[in-house]
Design a binder for these strands. Structure first.
Lengths: 175, 175
DNA sequence: GTCTATACTTCGATAGAC
DNA sequence: GTCTATCGAAGTATAGAC
């Protein structure tokens, strides 16, 4: 581990995630990941013996980040709903990047990635349901969050989307 | 063109889309496409000189399908909103497949695919706005549709999602 | 219009030096 | 812990027979 900056292992996962987000899984080759992390391919494969292990490492980190996010949501000063919507817009945080990257892997039909995402979504939904006391409303808010997310990751985001959502939800006495 | 069934060119695009949906763009290789369409790789490359041309062909077909969909939305018996939500859930139609496949390509940072999707979304939004007479509401409904879509394509769909959305929208006097 | 054969490139992974 | 060298498999694309 270098004295400056993050450990190589983390830099590799960072690079992997960034490439997945920016170029999709087709662009996230071991060569590209190693280059982006300023390590040789051999160096990469010392830390992760295969591409599969690299995915595994990313998912492990996501679970830790996810647990922290759910905790923050539970105790958010402006309430869980507001926190959820706010963080559904890609802010460029490490957690956002990890989430988008994982969605890319999930779309390649990887059950581990799908299940990691499903677990997180279940936790979010539980919070939304508890804070709204309304299953249908909680489900709808979650869908809106998913939509915000999808738009962001496909380059289709409308910048006034979030304020419009707030306006509509306030009509439902949610915000 | 064989007397039975679709022309080879269409069968190739069909196969390309199906592979994109089921395995992502990593699985949609020329080999796999050719095999799925029951054609040799050479046969494929007679119709499409490169993978890029195959994408081009898919997008061309999507634009035609998209124009038809917008027209159907405009004249839908139960209204544009209902039609939009109903068709946001993957029904397995050809158009759904084309849409999901195109989203996969857009995520690989392909501006042609992104712009084709953006055009379609703009048309949908225009219809939603006209039929609701409310920009914020139209935007929110579009986000819900995006969310339904995203969940379907990531294997995260909740089967009661659509009925919950209907319940909430009826509180807003939309449905 | 479709096939086989083949050239070239890139990918994932191993081996072994330092 | 990191590097270079190398291998086999798979990817895109071309050439030419049928």
């Amino acid at each position: 581990m270098p004295v400056d900056g993050r450990p190589t292992r983390d830099r590799l996962i960072d690079a992997f995630e960034s490439l997945l987000v920016s170029s999709g899984s087709r662009g996230a080759t071991l060569d590209a990941v190693a280059a982006a992390a300023d390590v040789s391919k051999g160096g990469l494969l010392y830390h992760f013996h295969s591409k599969d292990e690299l995915v595994e490492g990313m998912l492990e980190r996501l679970r830790v980040q996810g647990a922290a996010d759910v905790e923050k949501m539970r105790t958010a000063p402006n309430g869980a709903v507001d926190f959820y919507l706010e963080t559904s817009v890609d802010s460029g945080s490490d957690f956002d990047r990890a989430l988008i990257a994982t969605a890319r892997i999930a779309q390649e039909n990887d059950p581990r990635a799908s299940s990691a995402l499903a677990d997180l979504r279940e936790a979010w939904f539980a919070e939304l349901r508890e804070h709204t006391g309304d299953e249908a409303l909680a489900r709808t808010i979650q869908l809106i969050g998913d939509g915000l997310y999808f738009d962001d990751t496909t380059g289709l985001a409308a910048d006034d989307a979030l304020s419009h959502v707030r306006a509509v939800l306030s009509r439902l006495d949610v915000l």
